[in-house]
Amino acid sequence: MYVETVIDADMDVLWERTQNPARHQSWDLRFTSISYLPRTEGEPQRFRYATRLLPLLWIAGTGVSAGERQRPDGTRVSALRFASGHPLSLLAEGSGYWRYVPGPTGVRFLTGYDYRPRWGRCGALADRLVFRPLMGWATAWSFDRLRLWCERGIHPRAALGRALGECAARLALPLAALVASPAALVASPAAPLALAAGIAVLAVLLPPLPGTPAARRCRRTPSGRVGPPRLLTTLEPSCPRSSTRTWEPTSVVCTPRSGAASPSGSTTAKPVSGAERWSGSATGPSS
């Protein structure tokens, strides 16, 4: 899975708002809470995360992360592995990375991640049809929410309020068309219903307001070859059960069509010992 955006903000500001757990959870729809666990100097950062699906239903998991804040080419990178032992969690384990690439119009902020679903064939089908598209949308929407915070100073809570208000307005338009013509609806239901349907289509197709987050503003396929950083291979698996298999996001190659949790600071992770690494990358990890 791949998502990319360009954020016209200072690199240090972007790093702090993505690597600080309290800041991260404020803009990322995928997490309700993120908390770091105690660690000693030089070790990767372990953390707990939780997502609230219903008022009394939380899906929790654990992870390990590391980051490189100072790199010779001026870029920054962070990587993590995560897992959940919750029986209702479709996501069993996975891994991902963030890259920060400075450019003339801002910081190119991108992510790649992948995971292994549970529940066998039923889980794989649910993941392909529902969960994976939803995760991709939530990631892209969250990235644009972060961009608005860094570029325009719109706090994530305010951005969510704007998004909910705009959705309510779009839903109200076709209803208003029906309420405005009750006599016509009784005499000939087809015409008012067609009008309401047309308004509903326009409400969906119209672009969001500039200050409202939108997943459509993010790139969902890379413009070139992108692979997981080598830092990812140094992280031990974060599994709630005994396992020797770890998962890494695949490298993505964008070819022309015929006729797309977070560490703090810089740490050096210990190499994985005795673990079988799985990678769907044809080229292997990149720097």
Rank of each mutant, 00 (worst) to 15 (best):
L54T: 09
G120L: 07
L56N: 10
T75M: 11
S286I: 06
R81H: 10
W27A: 05
S273M: 14
P256T: 13
L37F: 11
F47H: 09
G198Y: 03
T18Q: 12
G123L: 05
G42H: 06
L54Y: 01
P229Q: 06
G211A: 14
A203G: 04
L53I: 15
S243L: 04
T221W: 05
L235S: 07
F131A: 11
R152D: 03
R132F: 13
S181Y: 06
A282F: 09
R46G: 08
W137V: 14
S286Y: 11
F109C: 03
D28N: 15
P38V: 06
F82Y: 15
S251M: 07
A214P: 06
T246M: 08
V64C: 02
E236Y: 14
S266H: 04
P210Q: 05
R116N: 02
T246I: 12
T246Q: 05
E93R: 15
L193I: 12
Y49T: 07
L37C: 01
S142L: 02
N20W: 08
S287M: 05
R48L: 12
L80S: 15
S26G: 11
S279G: 03
A261H: 02
V13F: 12
E41W: 03
Y97S: 02
G136I: 15
R39G: 08
A158Y: 04
W149V: 02
R145V: 02
S84I: 09
A50I: 09
F31V: 11
L56G: 08
L54M: 03
A190W: 01
A196S: 01
Y115Q: 07
S35E: 09
Y2E: 03
I154K: 04
P210F: 00
A177L: 12
R230D: 11
P228Q: 13
